[in-house]
C-alpha cells in the first residue's frame, strides 16, 4: 500500500520538477521528507523517469548527510560524541549500543525497532555522557545501564 503511494508520489514529484534545474536534489528531499529515507527501488524508478544514471543519484544521496538509504527505526537512538561526552567515555556507550542492537552507527535493526546515530553535542554537556532516544534525554549514562534503557522501549511494544 505504502509502495503504491510512493509510486504515485514519485510520478507527481517528477512531473513537478522535471523541467527545472537542480531537480534531482529537490525530488530526493521530498522523498526523504515523506518516507524518512530513499528506498533503492525508488531511486531506480527515478533514474528511469529523469534519465539520470543511478550512480549519479547515489553520489548525491551519499554525499549529503540528510539523505538516508535505510528506513528509519521506530525509535531513534543517538549517542553524543561532542567534546564533553567524548571525554567522559561516550565511546563505550557506542560500543554497548552496537553490541546490543547488532548494528553499526547509521544503521537500523532488522526489525526496524531502532535506528542508531552518533551525533555531535546535544546541548546538555553538564549531563555527559548523554544518549537520547526519540525526544528523551538520558544523562550521565553508564555503560551497564544501556541495556536497561533500551529494553524499556522493547517492553513498551509488547
Amino acid at each position: 500500500m505504502k509502495k503504491d503511494r510512493l509510486q504515485a508520489d514519485l510520478e507527481g514529484l517528477v512531473k513537478k520538477w522535471k523541467s527545472k534545474k537542480g531537480n534531482l536534489i529537490m525530488i530526493l528531499h521530498s522523498i526523504e521528507n515523506i518516507y524518512g529515507y530513499v528506498p533503492r527501488d525508488t531511486s531506480l524508478k527515478l533514474s528511469r523517469l529523469l534519465d539520470v544514471p543511478l550512480a549519479r543519484i547515489y553520489e548525491v544521496i551519499t554525499f549529503y548527510n540528510y539523505f538516508k538509504l535505510e528506513p528509519p527505526g521506530k525509535h531513534n537512538v543517538s549517542v553524543c560524541m561532542g567534546t564533553a561526552c567524548y571525554l567522559r567515555d561516550a565511546s563505550s556507550l557506542i560500543e554497548e549500543v552496537e553490541k546490543i542492537l547488532h548494528i553499526k552507527e547509521g544503521q537500523t535493526t532488522k526489525d526496524s525497532m531502532f535506528h542508531f546515530d552518533v551525533v555531535r553535542c546535544l546541548g546538555c554537556c553538564g549531563l555527559a555522557p548523554v544518549m537520547m532516544i526519540d525526544e528523551k534525554v538520558y544523562g550521565k549514562v553508564k555503560k551497564n545501564e544501556v541495556a536497561d534503557i533500551l529494553s524499556k522501549y522493547v517492553k513498551e511494544e509488547e
Binding site: S43, A55, I57, Y58, E59, T62, F63, L69
Partner: peptide, 19 residues
C-alpha cells in the same frame, strides 16, 4: 556506462557501483 561512482565524502569517499 556509469558502473562506477564516488560514494560518500571526505575520509569516507570510495569508488563503488551505486549502493
Amino acid at each position: 556506462v556509469w558502473a562506477l561512482s564516488f560514494l560518500q565524502r571526505g575520509m569516507d569517499t570510495r569508488i563503488s557501483p551505486a549502493g
